[in-house]
């Protein structure tokens, strides 16, 4: 039973990683940059939820406000900080993204002062008990949201005109431009979707552990980035697979007493192994060329 519980909890936290990893991988695939401020969007979403809850007290409104705010923030960051660097060296873009991450954390620290408020209104308590077997509601909710997000995003990418254009831009931006695709608009949409997903992931984290700090998004952000690389950065199914895999490994490792203290080491070892064995990630594409 312990193993099963660990597995289900792992699928659930893996779902959260997957949702965050989707933001990393889509932005990488389409804008060809690593947005290291992505994890901090989660935390800013948390701050918005906190401020709405303090004023109005309605959790649903708080979540909605966080999603909207994060979308606007993500798109604004792209326009102000990343767009002027299009075509610049990738190192310049990377440093800018890291700076953006620190900027967001610092702004949040000013806002939160030194407090670490508990957003208990977001907490989802209770569990389903089947004999000695117990699953928290928050776990079930996370799994359900993960499935909905994955299915919706897959359908969007596969069947909508904008989704197809995203695939085209990720494959060859200039060729997409020559098809009449407004690539800047597609990049904006990508940041919007990624940021909305970050806000949702933020809620899923806070409904389990409702403590808000200005580094709330750092570790999950890094793990989700690792998950995106494990799955094959740029690949949407890859981010889903990588996130779930990382969550399950984390949870199972945590349930084994000998390994428990080294859980994070175990997780990042997977990243190292994947990079050694298959550098493009599990579902990452090796480039094919044809004459």
């Amino acid at each position: 039973m312990d193993f099963l519980t660990a597995l289900i909890n792992g699928l659930s936290s893996g779902g959260t990683y997957a949702i965050i990893a989707l933001g990393y991988t889509m932005v990488y695939g389409i804008a060809k940059m690593l947005n290291f401020a992505h994890g901090d969007i989660i935390m800013i979403g948390g701050c918005v939820m906190y401020s709405v809850l303090s004023a109005k007290g309605n959790p649903l409104l708080a979540i909605l406000a966080a999603v909207v705010f994060c979308v606007v923030l993500g798109v604004t960051i792209e326009k102000l900080a990343y767009k002027p660097l299009r075509g610049a060296a990738s190192l310049a873009v990377l440093i800018t993204a890291i700076s953006m991450s620190y900027l967001l954390q610092s702004v949040a620290q000013i806002y939160l002062k030194s407090g670490t408020p508990a957003l208990s209104a977001l907490r989802l308590e209770g569990s389903v008990n089947i004999g000695s077997f117990r699953i928290d509601y928050s776990t079930i909710l996370t799994l359900a949201v993960t499935i909905v997000v994955m299915v919706a995003l897959s359908l969007f990418v596969k069947y909508s005109k904008t989704g197809r254009a995203m695939v085209a831009v990720s494959e060859d931006r200039d060729a997409a431009l020559l098809m009449g695709i407004n690539t800047n608009f597609i990049i904006t949409i990508t940041f919007a979707i990624g940021s909305a997903l970050a806000a949702i992931a933020g809620y899923l984290m806070l409904c389990k552990a409702p403590i808000l700090t200005n580094t709330l998004g750092s570790m999950p952000g890094i793990k989700a980035f690792a998950a995106a690389v494990i799955g094959g950065i740029g690949s949407i199914p890859g981010a889903m697979l990588g996130g779930i895999l990382l969550g399950v490994v984390e949870s199972i490792s945590y349930s084994i007493p000998v390994l428990a203290p080294f859980t994070e080491a175990v997780e990042f070892s997977i990243l190292i192994i994947i990079l050694l064995v298959r550098p493009s990630g599990i579902l990452g594409k090796m480039r094919r060329e044809k004459v």
């Binding site: 197809r164 695939v167 494959e171 060859d172």
Partner: peptide, 11 residues
């Protein structure tokens, strides 16, 4: 129609 065709290989 660009040099090297530049078709979308994964579509």
């Amino acid at each position: 129609v660009p040099e090297g065709r530049r078709i979308f290989q994964n579509l």
